[in-house]
Design a protein around this nucleic acid. Structure first.
Lengths: 240, 240
DNA sequence: GATGGTAGAGATCATTCTGATAATAAATTA
DNA sequence: TAATTTATTATCAGAATGATCTCTACCATC
């Protein structure tokens, strides 16, 4: 049996506050994945700017403020530490081990995002030395941030299986080879060209453009583009 | 652009605390689903025992204490309000709208569980008037608890699609008809008998017993039992 | 004791999906 | 011209799926 099972229940209201002494800080940590064809799947990190562990690499994190919910806090924190705006962040999991932060009891709500690195090339600020690292090799992180990243990577593979996820990571126009290489990076494998093409086409989410990409082949590969309408309705209806 | 995006970042450490004034309460709310062949899918609720909204129906909720993480808090709270022990609780989502609790800023981490009602028939205490309600019609709940239940029901359908979930809801020995009726309840549909049997057998998770259930048929239906070893390894390997 | 009802347990069949492999197409280079 | 590279399409066998039907055991009733 767990040790705290006999701890007291919260007591009744006094005035306009609950009688409860334990008020932890609530933090948000953002795990942002990007993709680059040269270096593969990438993870965005910043240098921590406060003690303890000042100067070490960490996820983009901050504390929940008054008058904002967690989604808003995640947006704000990511913006203040990296300059990125309009990132689609999704709640991942709460990390709440009682001494995960040595300074003070802090629980952390993690958020994940997938972004196209090159869309933010010029937007990312240098203030906190935000930098991309390959997901296969990045520095040791503070606190339990390593565990957070491990969990997020698992979740990414899992979701990519079910959702036609990952378009966020590519340029607006892309070839099948580019798309397949992205999936290869996520799964750390090599998918079959023909079958991958058939599978992706079967979703009906791709629109073939007239132009071809001649950079990586002599024949030239058609550019494709996401049918954003179908894509959003598909994502939204997924839970039905 | 969101309104709080220019709010301050957390400041540096002073002594052994972060300089941050906003310390919300952290609550846990448990959404427990049960199943009964007579009445279908059920939801466990308790009468709220403190103001405001005292006496109204609510999810089993409480506040996070020192020296416990959220998983432990969820176990403790569920035990103190219902008497249930050893329930497999899973984190669902954090609800954090800044005025979701009128008394004081409180964020709530929700947990879900699936249990076999009849395993807890005698364990559930009367102290907080815990009661089962059909998921199709239960009383209006306090705060944002209705929204929490809605979200949990969606999630349940979604997961039942992918995982061979739901065995928690049945007695240890069950017939195919019982199992199918449970899935019918979750999906609010009528699945085909033959195909359902074939599908479930294909998972290799069921063991046929020698005995038959004669209550609902003259011929008698074989009892089946979950191969718990295979089941747990399957669940654990799902994220790989 | 023949008939029909009921619920369990399988069988069958057409369709689709999937993985693997091969064939074709278009351009470049040796 | 032949070889090479990458893109694209075709083919084929096996698995999975949905719909429908058959068969079995038992009971009730005429």
């Amino acid at each position: 049996m767990i040790s705290t099972i006999n701890a007291p229940l919260p007591t009744v209201v006094s005035g306009s506050q609950y009688k409860h002494t334990h008020r932890p800080l609530v933090a948000i940590d953002c795990i942002v994945f990007g993709y680059d064809e040269e270096v593969g799947l990438q993870l965005l990190l910043v240098k921590r700017h406060l003690d303890p562990e000042k100067g070490r690499w960490a996820l983009m994190g901050g504390l929940l403020d008054d008058n904002e919910n967690l989604d808003q806090a995640a947006q704000r924190i990511l913006y203040r530490l990296t300059g990125m705006t309009n990132v689609y962040l999704e709640e991942l999991k709460v990390f709440s081990h009682s001494d995960r932060d040595p300074v003070e009891r802090t629980i952390s709500v993690t958020y994940t995002a997938l972004v196209n690195i090159h869309n933010y090339e010029h937007q990312i600020t240098d203030e906190f030395e935000a930098r991309w690292f390959p997901t296969s090799s990045f520095p040791e992180l503070i606190f339990d941030h390593n565990e957070m990243v491990r969990f997020a990577k698992q979740q990414l593979k899992y979701k990519a299986n079910l959702h036609p996820i990952g378009f966020e990571l590519l340029p607006e126009r892309f070839t099948f080879t580019q798309l397949r290489k992205l999936y290869d990076a996520i799964y750390e494998t090599q998918l079959d060209k023909g079958n991958f093409r058939r599978m992706m086409l079967a979703t009906g989410l791709l629109v073939r453009l007239k132009e071809k990409d001649k950079t990586s082949s002599k024949k030239g590969a058609y550019f494709y583009q996401l049918d954003t309408d179908k894509y959003t309705t598909k994502l939204n209806n997924f839970y039905l």
